[in-house]
Simulated scan of single mutants.
Amino acid sequence: MTGRFCTLEPLDPARHAADLFAANARDGEGRNWTYLPYGPFADLGDYRAWMERTCLGDDPLFHAIIDHATDKAVGVASYLRIEPAVGVIEVGHINYSPLLQRTPAATEAMVLMMARVFDELGYRRYEWKCDALNAPSRRAAARLGFRYEGLFRQATLYKGRNRDTAWFSIIDSEWPAIRAAFQAWLDAANFDADGRQRTALAAGGQP
């Protein structure tokens, strides 16, 4: 999946682990791992071994996010709970390194994944779930056009505590308007010579 700022490609530990480990190391306090059931990893060997155990299956289907400016992997996202028979699929395992956070590529990566789900694969429903305490993830879901659907209390257990899970979704009838807003936001005219956006993307995927 290729856009103007980034490309998503199947995660390959041999190709991507070193770049991702280096990018994640810029998060010196390990905060990016707080709401993930794994990590942080002590060294590259541990990180690559986890990838080889966990990230090479068909569900979850992991992707590396490659920054066109550096041609390096700077983040990870996956499709999971893939149910083609009923047209439902989820995005998850999102881990954006500090090199990807708050960049146009960060948004474009999610747009590319949505476009594949709805335009190419014809799914009916695209889900986003996160720890209810994860305020940045909840804000991101709203900004990207996902609608909040409710709270599943004590839905799972990880890192020694209960997790309440917040559910969000986009359905196929909502996608055309969201896609149009993203296309306008990602247009080259919306960015100045230094790559700064002229018009922000607000909650609900609307400029």
Rank of each mutant, 00 (worst) to 15 (best):
A166H: 05
G87C: 13
A49R: 15
I171K: 04
A140S: 13
E127A: 07
A203I: 06
Y126M: 04
F152A: 01
A115R: 15
N162A: 02
A42T: 08
L133S: 00
Q101P: 10
E52N: 11
V88H: 11
F21I: 03
I89D: 05
R161A: 01
A42E: 12
V111E: 06
H68N: 09
V86K: 07
E29M: 09
L201V: 01
V88K: 14
L8H: 08
D58P: 06
L186D: 03
R147D: 09
S173W: 00
R143K: 12
D12T: 09
A64I: 12
A142H: 06
I170D: 01
L133P: 01
A42S: 10
E83K: 11
N95F: 10
T156W: 01
A25M: 12
M1C: 14
D12K: 13
A109F: 04
L8S: 10
D187Y: 09
I66W: 07
S137F: 02
R53M: 09
P13N: 10
A188M: 01
P84E: 07
R4L: 08
H63D: 11
L99G: 09
R53F: 01
E52K: 12
E120V: 12
V74K: 05
E174K: 04
E9I: 14
P10V: 15
A25C: 02
P10D: 04
D12R: 09
D59N: 15
